[in-house]
Design a protein around this nucleic acid. Structure first.
Lengths: 184, 184
DNA sequence: TGGTACATGTAACATGTTACATGATTAG
DNA sequence: CTAATCATGTAACATGTTACATGTACCA
């Protein structure tokens, strides 16, 4: 199976640009909100990739709008490259979850510290779960003429499932590990 | 909360070195097997970090063994740095799951292609799930004098939960999306 | 009129990946 | 004796992160 050579980050941006012209800022927001759970980009990266792709003719910069907004639109060449890339077998996922390292080496921590970290992270994950739940609901109750894209729905459901799993796992941690002593 | 400055990859190696001297090769294997689901390293990286840490005095190279095995052991300074690092708040996780991108943009794919990718990945995830299940069992039925480390158990359980979630999600994909037509 | 969110971009640096070169040991 | 696995390492390159600089528009 031919493997992927071009930059996956760039390609993900191309994918979003199929929906219409977007600025770098918009792209960062869209990626973070919609697929932040399994794909991430930084501003720097996005602007860099946009420049590169513009040089390669995969996208084209539009006129500056208010606030120096610079919308990019995908070109015919861009669509072609994107399709070719998409049809190649995606590689395995990579995850970097520093909190899990902290848990793994938890015996080297003063008691209670791990619990603080977990509580801190729990908030973030609850928030994401709620966001995904909202997205799922919005998709399910989409009105009328534009039927919801089942592919988008599937990815959002992944996000929701992932967050649910993480939160359940937090709940499953033995009290002794996170320094919350058992009821006396 | 003070944030982390030193290299998390290096620190993860230091963590493993607490169990005793290990070679670069061993470290790669240990990380991949035990925590491959939420942390990953490449050989190159490991050898690079080992050199750096040796220069900094955090680890010490032992004598060459057979096959030029070069075991490193952690120093007192290394333990100190590790503990300090571990006690700082870990950052959020990052995930890069290219298959999910392929799903997200699935409408641009020829029918059936997505299904092939999913089947391919399913195998890998089933294997990982089984490995984690084996690890969990081994930990649970650990005999006698050395009680199993509950922190390690917790992380392995995360791996198992994660893989289960991914596989369930695969199963939940509508047949239409993956090109497996409904029963006629 | 002042703060917040919007918006772009560069530079320096850190980290991660791929490809390659080299060779020892072991199992069959 | 030969293939697979073990084992180390370098070099070149690609990607990702952090910090900074600059300024606009909106809204309370």
């Amino acid at each position: 199976m031919t493997s992927r050579s071009v930059n996956a980050t760039a390609m993900s941006l191309l994918g979003f640009l199929h929906e219409g012209p977007m600025t770098g800022w918009n792209l960062v927001a869209a990626v973070t909100r919609q697929i932040g759970d399994f794909w991430s980009v930084t501003q720097s990266q996005v602007y860099r990739e946009l420049s590169t792709m513009a040089d390669l003719g995969l996208i084209r910069a539009g006129k500056l709008g208010p606030r120096d907004r610079r919308p990019y639109s995908i070109t015919r060449a861009g669509r072609k490259v994107f399709r070719e890339w998409l049809a190649t077998n995606p590689g395995p996922e990579t995850i970097r979850f520093p909190l899990l390292l902290t848990v793994l080496f938890g015996k080297h921590l003063p008691p209670g510290r791990l619990g603080e970290f977990v509580e801190d992270h729990r908030k973030a994950h609850e928030q994401r779960r709620d966001e995904y739940a909202g997205l799922v609901e919005a998709i399910e109750s989409a009105t009328g003429d534009e039927p919801p894209d089942p592919y988008i729905e599937a990815t959002v459901r992944f996000g929701l499932a992932y967050e649910t799993t993480v939160l359940d796992w937090f709940d499953s941690l033995p009290p002794a590990l996170i320094g919350r002593p058992e009821q006396p």
